[in-house]
Amino acid sequence: MKRWFVLAAFLVVAGFLVLLGTGMRPFGAPKAFEMDQYFIDYTQAEVAANNVVTAVVFDYRGYDTLGEATVLFCAVVGVALILRKVRR
């Protein structure tokens, strides 16, 4: 009984996901790209870098990278806390 309920719920959610996927726009034709076009056009003039992705990560969206570094630090601290040696 419980297993059938779980299976039915999973099938509903998975069918909804696949339906969403089939209903999306065609692959390879993004609709909103003005901001990315600005990054591609002006990265070499503003940041003087060839790699647009690195320019976005470290310059235009530096705050995101700061938060990411914070998350990494927190995860390392958490692992060190969990895996410490317990004295009995």
Partner: peptide, 17 residues
């Protein structure tokens, strides 16, 4: 588009953590 790739890089590192 470069922005989804940059944010996916962030997402990968957070998923690793």
């Amino acid at each position: 588009l470069p922005t989804p790739q940059a944010l996916t890089l962030t997402s990968i590192v957070i998923g690793l953590a």
